[in-house]
Amino acid sequence: MRYVLNRLLFLVVSIWAAITLNFILPRLMPGNPAAIMMAKFQGRMPPQALHALEIEMGMASDKPMIVQYFDYLRSMVTGHLGLSYTFYPTPVSAIIRQSLPWTIGLLGVAWLVAVVLGTLAGIWIAWRRGSKADAILPIGTMFFQSIPGFWLGLILLYFAGFLHNWFPTAHAYGDDVTPGFNGRFILSVLYHGFLPFLVVFLGSVSGWIVGMRNNMIMTLGEDYVVFAEAKGIPTRRLIFAYAARNALLPQVTSIAIALSTIIGGQILIEQVFSYPGIGYQLTNAVTSEDYPLIQGMFLIIAVATLVINFIVDMIYGRLDPRARRRGATS
């Protein structure tokens, strides 16, 4: 219990730090969104409107920075992330609500499937070390891992999408279906999602196979596994309860580290497939200097990473009794 509270406190502090950084960074960037908005309307707006826009966007310089900061904190806590400039006047939270399910639903799931299948495959080939699967699987998947995801995505788009028309080349679902819980929509989503799913899956599965295989081989040589084998533990329980559970510990650490880099990689993949997820919207927001949207995106990425890390910590604590203890005393 102390371990959980400890990690929870860490979570809250990190989220606060993320919000604060999120406030500072865009204000250090050059450019003024109100001026950009003016430029967008190409002189069809009166000059007085510039000041009005600045006030509305919270860019007016008459408020001291510290007041702006506390205003910002208050609106964050109450869930008001401001209005998007590019999709003015759509609230940022609405855009996030639209794009987040696509990122989590497709790319997050693809990544999770890669982690789970890769780990299981690693356990299996380590147990059958020296078999054909052990020789083929790590090298075969490593081939795809070494190709950058966006490039593999482009190649797949060109062959399977453009040349042969097997798969659609963009968007999350076809124009001819109505979003909702109906068969045609779901099929269309699966059809559109196949290629990006494949790219994310192939790009990460090899690392999990090889990592887990090596951890598992190390663990299988440990005395407690040999001792368990000697004392007659049935093979299945020996592999999963006695060996894999220990081999999983470094794997869980790698998962936690990889989580923070995965969103960056997905920005490119969403861009290649014009997939309407968080990464795609973030690229749009950056190119149009849409401050509230950028801030909102960064915030959601940071919070998601921290929350997932918190979950990983909880899993780690369940797996390793020693971590529970260390967490409580630190």
């Binding site: 407690y224 009794p321 020693r322």
Partner: peptide
């Protein structure tokens, strides 16, 4: 075992 210290599984 020789290294009975390591003969017990640390997570059980």
């Amino acid at each position: 075992f020789q290294s009975a210290m390591n003969a017990l599984n640390p997570v059980m």
